[in-house]
Design a protein around this nucleic acid. Sequence first.
DNA 1: TACACCTGTCAGGTATTACTGACAGGTGTA
DNA 2: TACACCTGTCAGTAATACCTGACAGGTGTA
Lengths: 99, 99
Amino acid sequence: MDRSEEQLLTVLAALDNPHRLRIIHALHRQGRNYVSQLARELNLSRPLLHLHLQKLEEAQLVTSQLELSADGKALKYFEVADFHLLLSPATITEAVGKQ
Amino acid sequence: MDRSEEQLLTVLAALDNPHRLRIIHALHRQGRNYVSQLARELNLSRPLLHLHLQKLEEAQLVTSQLELSADGKALKYFEVADFHLLLSPATITEAVGKQ
DNA sequence: TACACCTGTCAGGTATTACTGACAGGTGTA
DNA sequence: TACACCTGTCAGTAATACCTGACAGGTGTA
C-alpha cells in the first residue's frame, strides 16, 4: 500500500480525530450501520457525524451504499474499508520522496 | 507496539502535517542534525521548526541530545526514533477499545 | 566591544477545523 | 393532514493549529 505524501496526509488528517477513530471502531465491530442510527449510538449530532463520515470516505477509509429499507426509507449504510497503513521513518521517507 | 487511543492520537496529530513529515524525511536521510542547520535546509524559521520538533518529540517520533561543539557552542541534535505503527481497522479498534 | 553563531520562549495574528441549529426534500403510517 | 423516520446542506460561530517577529541568554572570535 504505497501512497504519495498527499494521500498519506489525507489519511492522517482523517484519522487525527477522536470521533473518527470511534466511528471506525464502531463500524468495525458492527460491520455496517446507517447514519442516523450510528449518530444515536455514538451520541453525535447527525450533521456532525455526516461531516466526519465524509472525511473518512474521502480518505477511502470507509465506504457507503444508499439502500432502501423494506418500508421504503432511504438508508445510507457505511462500513470500514480494509485498509492497512504502516507508518515508520522508512515509509514516510518513501512517501515524501515522491513529492 | 500497542498504544492507547490517547497515545495513538498524539502520534497521528504529530504526523498530520506536511512540515513534520518532511522533518522526519530529512532526519531519516541525514541521520541527525541540529535545529538551526535543519531550519536552513528546510527553509523554515527556527521558532517554527522548534515548535514542530517539540510536537514530534512529545509523540516520541524523534529524540534529541544537547551537545557542545568543538568551538563551544551548544547544539541540539535531533534524530528519528525507530517507530513502527500499523494502522488498520483492527489496530484502531484495539486502541479505542482500551478507552 | 562588536559580531556571529547557538539555544529557548512568547504575544499576537492568521488560517484551519470542528460544531450547532435550521432548513429542504424524500417515503411511509395513522 | 400530521407525524415519524430517512437523507443532504449551509451559515455562522467556537475552538485549534499554525506562524512570525521580537526578545533573552549562552559561547566563541576579531
